[in-house]
């Protein structure tokens, strides 16, 4: 399993009901179901990802995240997870509200635009960064709302959302996760665990 998913796996409590937004091939949900008795649903729009989920017995719904989560009632589940999708949403801020309506706790992983290599790319080449975590060119990227570790922290504060945990790691998802040492500069991928209210 990808290292960001491993960290999320650890953060999800046993027996939780979860919603995985952009669940891909369902690896995380399948592992959580098998080992932690977690139940829930994945939302995905990629046909291959959906077929892979079905093959694993993961509940998957073809649903575009930009259409919102209106079909889920308040507190429909315990934890909402979203990996590598925040930056591709039309309104990441309203999605954060929606996620915290559907569950009291959310875990969100996204590429940190302030990673030092991205900064160097922009500073010295004068071009939009292209990297392992951001592999697309500026004109065809699905990532329309790039943000930084710091930006997301600020958004949470502005919304009165509690940051329970946060960590950064590298995009190849190796090595250990840390939040201690200048994460906004050295973290390639950011992961936040946030809760409703202060």
């Amino acid at each position: 399993m990808r290292a960001d998913l491993e960290l999320i796996y650890d953060w999800v409590p046993d027996n939780a009901r979860i919603l995985d937004l952009g669940c891909g091939d369902g690896t995380l949900l399948a592992a959580l179901a098998r080992h932690k008795n977690v139940t829930g649903y994945g939302l995905e729009i990629d046909p291959e990802g959906i077929a892979a989920c079905l093959g694993k017995g993961v509940n998957v719904l073809e649903q575009d995240l930009d259409d919102g989560l209106a079909n889920f009632v308040d507190d429909a589940c315990d934890v909402v997870v979203m990996t590598q999708a925040l930056q591709a949403l039309r309104r990441p801020d309203t999605m954060l509200d929606e996620m915290l309506r559907v569950a009291p706790e959310c875990i969100i992983a996204f590429p940190n635009f302030a990673y030092w290599k991205h900064r160097l790319h922009l500073t010295f080449r004068g071009r939009m960064p292209v990297s392992r975590s951001l592999p697309h060119a500026w004109y065809d990227t699905p990532n329309i709302h790039l943000s930084t570790f710091q930006d997301f922290s600020n958004l949470c504060r502005a919304k009165g959302v509690t940051i329970a945990d946060r960590a950064v790691g590298s995009a190849d998802h190796e090595g250990h996760w840390s939040s201690r040492w200048w994460p906004n500069l050295f973290g390639e991928t950011a992961i936040f665990r946030v809760r409703r209210g202060r």
């Binding site: 959906i50 989920c53 509940n59 998957v60 719904l61 649903q63 079909n71 429909a76």
Partner: peptide, 17 residues
Amino acid sequence: QELVNALLRAGKSVSYV
């Protein structure tokens, strides 16, 4: 989708394509 959403509200296992 009406069916799917009702199954969701009822907390049932459902996949939709």
